[in-house]
């Protein structure tokens, strides 16, 4: 398998022919349109090492995310960044390359925060490893974290070691009626006090809060916050809907914009339905033109991504400042001198 990967990469590099790295294809929609000859990573699969007491799991790129998460669940552990799968086919390699995180992100951290080490084949098919399988490691530049969200542009991620966490002993979801501005104000205030809020979602005057932690902490927080408790099953389904974009807000053909902004920025005054997550730091929007959305996100101190639908030709991600763009181009060249991996996926220039 590895020998095949290597041959494919070397042949592509010799001809400077683009390669499209792909796991289950669940994130084909994300980023610039995929192009190039297909390199399917699914054959290189399996959990390589997992010891619950080390809080570290190492698996190959083609491992289905579902399989990894089920294995962790059997030991009472989880991927705390709650990566969205967007379909049953999602693989670990794709999950890290996309670098997306789910509802628990604001409380627990993002995909990059849980990456401890990675092994990849670079653009010269060199088999290189960075980081490791221990909690702390500052030997060498942190290349493994750099891979999270790189959309496969730096190399073929072969293996990833992730920090995993115990599942919370208790979880409870509350529903509160709150207008947008008030919800944002409350979310920021709560985040500044020791409350075990592990997820939040506001939509149409209704704020859902998930509390996670020790039974006692969850109970005490629920009392303090008020609202209505949502039954266990319904709560699971609701958060899964938010994580997987199965919630009705995400259906339909209208373009879906993702605005990543400071959590305390005022309601974004743009037409179109909005759903707010991450304590105010993530705002989903179902309409809008490039110019208007980008300007609104930038003036709020954040950035916008055309997540699904809409006109990708005008750009998917927020443009990079010239100094950063130069660094990006050169880093890309350092890892992938022939420019073969997933061209255009993260940035039109490389």
């Amino acid at each position: 398998m590895l020998a095949d990967f290597r041959d494919t990469i070397l042949a592509a590099a010799a001809r400077r022919a683009p390669l499209r790295l792909r796991g289950g294809g669940s994130k084909d929609f994300y980023g610039g349109a995929p192009r190039g000859a297909l390199l399917d990573t699914r054959g290189y699969a399996g959990i390589v090492d997992y010891e619950p007491t080390e809080l570290v799991a190492t698996a190959r790129c083609g491992t289905p995310l579902a399989e990894l998460e089920e294995t962790l669940a059997r030991e009472g552990q989880m991927l705390a960044f709650e990566p969205p799968r967007f379909g049953g086919a999602a693989t670990l390699g794709g999950c890290i390359a996309a670098g997306l995180s789910g509802p628990r992100r604001a409380a627990a951290g993002a995909a990059r925060d849980f990456v401890l080490g990675a092994r990849l084949l670079d653009g010269q098919a060199r088999d290189v490893s960075f980081g490791g399988r221990v909690m702390k490691n500052v030997a060498g530049y942190d290349v493994s974290r750099l891979l999270a969200g790189s959309l496969g542009t730096l190399g073929l991620i072969l293996e990833v070691s992730l920090k995993v966490l115990p599942r919370p002993a208790a979880e409870l979801t509350l529903r509160l009626e709150l207008p947008e501005a008030k919800a944002l104000e409350s979310l920021n205030r709560w985040a500044g006090s020791p409350l075990p809020i592990s997820a939040s979602a506001w939509r149409d005057g209704e704020l859902s809060l998930r509390l996670s932690g020790a039974q006692s902490a969850v109970r005490a927080a629920a009392q303090k916050l008020g609202g209505e408790a949502l039954a266990g099953e319904a709560a699971l389904e609701f958060w899964s809907g938010i994580r997987e974009h199965a919630h009705p807000f995400f259906s339909g053909d209208a373009p879906l914009w993702r605005l990543s902004v400071p959590s305390n920025c005022a309601p974004v005054a743009l037409p179109g339905a909005q759903l707010i997550e991450w304590g105010g730091a993530l705002r989903w929007l179902r309409a809008g033109t490039q110019a208007a959305v980008r300007a609104a996100a930038a003036s709020a101190g954040g950035h916008a991504t055309l997540f699904r639908g809409g006109d990708k030709a005008a750009g998917v991600f927020a443009p990079l400042a010239p100094a950063l763009l130069r660094l990006h181009r050169e880093l890309k060249a350092a890892f992938d001198p022939a420019g073969i991996f997933n061209p255009g996926r993260l940035h039109p220039d490389f």
Partner: peptide, 23 residues
């Protein structure tokens, strides 16, 4: 001059913040 990361929870492009920290 370089400016990486931001006051939102992520930034566009590669995670240069992760690269700078610990360098």
């Amino acid at each position: 001059p370089l400016d990486v990361g931001g006051e939102s929870l992520d930034a566009p492009g590669l995670d240069l913040l992760a690269l700078l920290i610990g360098s």
